[in-house]
Simulated scan of single mutants.
Amino acid sequence: MKVALFDFDGTLYPHETFETLRAHLKDHPKFKKNYKHFVRHFAPTYFGYKMKLVPKIKMQHRALESYVLSFKGYSKKDIDGFFADVAKSMSTELRTTLLEKIKELKDENYYVVLISGAFIPLLESLFKGVGFDYIVGSKIHYKGETLDYKSRFERVFADRKIDIIKEHFKNKEVDWKNSQAYSDSITDIKMLELVGQPVAVTPDNDLLSVAQDKNWKILTDL
């Protein structure tokens, strides 16, 4: 089995996903009242980050956690509907070159995986019909049909991606040497090193340096 791993934020989607989510919550006709709850919960961590008292990773985790908590009291149907609205607007900005590449890889019988820190309902709505064999993202927990705001939130990020990938494929024979991975960020370096054909997509400076040093494929004109 050959595998193709795709990052989302900055790779398939060229913008910062969280900023897009923040703007949609602020302006959404039905859910914009949630925005003040998000800000109230997130503000202390954000200001701590600006004062260099809180690490960036912790700040990013708190941002997503605060976002979920702003939907306290809402049903799964409501939350899925909100993410479907966001996905509809984001869909026009996906990188078509990579979407075409996914179709090509599917035709070549690759097992194609989307692995991201973005929320699962957003990813599932955004890529419905695209053909991913497996989608990994940050889970939103429910108690019955209502948001379970007491469950611990876990952001899928960096090394956690590797743990999930290895767990998913532990009983499968994977041809890693002829597998591919696509990402824009140095935080995904271990995911890129896992395969024999890594691809740096409009990479940040750190990843660009590594990709050039290792003679990896680099995509910039997308």
Rank of each mutant, 00 (worst) to 15 (best):
T97W: 05
H28L: 04
F38G: 06
A43V: 09
F31I: 07
N109S: 10
F82Q: 10
D85F: 01
P44H: 13
A84I: 07
P55K: 08
I102T: 07
K30P: 04
V54R: 13
F82K: 01
I79P: 00
Y111Q: 05
M51W: 08
M90R: 03
G81Q: 01
R62T: 09
A84E: 02
L105I: 14
K52C: 13
K72A: 01
K76H: 09
A118P: 00
Y49V: 15
K33E: 08
F71P: 04
D107Y: 01
D107R: 00
D78C: 02
E108A: 12
H41L: 07
S75T: 04
P44M: 09
L105V: 13
K101R: 11
K58R: 12
Y49P: 06
S116C: 04
S89T: 11
S91C: 05
E65C: 06
I57P: 01
L114V: 11
I79D: 06
R95V: 10
E93C: 12
G81K: 02
N109P: 03
Y46M: 15
S91H: 08
P29A: 05
Y35F: 09
D78V: 00
K88R: 13
E108F: 00
T92H: 08
H41W: 02
G81N: 02
K33M: 11
Y74F: 03
I79Q: 00
T97N: 15
I79N: 06
N109H: 01
T45E: 14
R40P: 01
A43G: 07
Y46N: 14
Y74R: 03
D80R: 01
E65R: 07
H28K: 06
K72H: 14
A87Q: 04
Y35D: 10
L53V: 11
K72G: 06
G48N: 08
K30E: 10
G81R: 00
L64C: 09
V54M: 15
F42C: 13
E65A: 12
L114R: 09
Y110F: 09
K101D: 12
G73W: 03
R95K: 14
L114A: 04
V113F: 02
M90D: 10
T45A: 15
K72N: 14
E104R: 02
K56M: 14
K56S: 15
L64G: 08
S91V: 04
Q60Y: 03
H41I: 15
H41P: 05
V113D: 13
K36S: 08
T96S: 10
